[in-house]
């Protein structure tokens, strides 16, 4: 029994790899719970009227692709479905292109399902702009100037019908930020007081964002892959991320088993020592 106290870490790694691979190949489909934060974001998008303008912010890069891209994709599709107009900005230059690809794929999907998702009229990807929070602050005053009047693809704002309505970023245009760290949420909590703020979080940040939700600075938040999966359940009743949640369950289960084994080993060693 005492051997359980010192299992070679390589066994830990090997079992982990196997346990995560099996459900990816053959998902079981365990039912998910539902977070208040996810419901809040969903209900907000559900309440949008056709023609409402919302902002999205890509503040992540490749490292958080697995967690935040599914969130972005589902949220973006939902906005297209409700007929809301989406303007995407990106606080991270390293993730701007990634975010564009995700939005484009989601728009294609929405079009296929019969919703209107034309670039330029239904959504615009403004992308990354240099200058940090100073630029973001200027967007409130003169959006066109702050962005040098071009979008991510190099189109002139004057050629994009949607942008005629976005000369300024006013408080009636809420923002949903997909955030993996810094710069991120503080840009909005510091400089966009009064704008409704929603957050898509990586799991690591979840514990730190709670104080902001408590104080009402954040209206709703999605938590990592779980949040994405829950959103997909609300939106489509299931989806690609939901399938991955089985692997998550098994991974967590293995860690719990490891903790139990370790404690059994530890206690039996204590007993032996007397």
């Amino acid at each position: 029994m005492e051997k359980l106290e010192n299992i070679d870490p390589r066994w830990v790694y090997l079992v982990m790899a196997i346990l995560l691979t099996i459900p990816i190949l053959k998902p079981v489909g365990l039912a998910l719970g539902m977070d208040e934060g996810t419901k809040a974001v969903y209900n907000w998008v559900e309440s949008l009227k056709p023609g409402d303008i919302v902002f999205g912010d890509v503040a992540y890069a490749g490292g958080s692709d697995a967690e935040l891209s599914p969130q972005l994709s589902a949220w973006f599709y939902h906005c297209m479905k409700k007929g809301a107009k989406v303007v995407m900005v990106a606080q991270w230059n390293t993730g701007a292109s990634l975010g564009y690809k995700v939005c484009q794929a989601a728009a294609e999907k929405a079009k296929k399902d019969g919703y209107s998702a034309e670039y330029g009229t239904d959504w615009v990807y403004v992308g990354w702009k240099a200058g940090g929070t100073t630029t973001w602050r200027q967007m409130q005053v003169d959006f066109w100037n702050a962005c040098a009047e071009t979008d991510h693809l190099g189109n002139k704002f004057s050629d994009l019908p949607l942008m005629q309505r976005v000369k300024q970023w006013t408080p009636d245009m809420p923002v949903m930020i997909f955030s993996a760290g810094s710069p991120g949420v503080p840009t909005y909590t510091n400089y966009f007081v009064g704008w409704p703020l929603y957050v898509g979080n990586v799991a690591v940040q979840a514990a730190e964002i709670v104080p902001l939700v408590r104080s009402g600075q954040v209206k709703g938040n999605l938590l990592g892959m779980t949040g994405a999966a829950q959103y997909e359940v609300l939106l489509w009743g299931g989806g690609p991320t939901v399938k991955k949640m089985d692997a998550q369950s098994l991974g967590h289960l293995w860690i719990i088993v490891l903790i139990v084994l370790g404690n059994i080993g530890y206690i039996s060693k204590l007993r032996k020592k007397g």
């Binding site: 691979t21 990816i24 697995a66 967690e67 799991a203 399938k243 991955k244 692997a247 998550q248 967590h252």
Partner: peptide, 28 residues
């Protein structure tokens, strides 16, 4: 406890690259 799911997602991402993009096994 919260971070674990984020870290597992990272591996799942690599795994789906290896299985789907490299070996061509349909997943899910």
């Amino acid at each position: 406890g919260n971070t674990i799911q984020g870290r597992i997602s990272l591996f799942l991402q690599r795994l789906s690259f290896l299985l789907a993009d490299w070996l061509g096994i349909p997943i899910g």
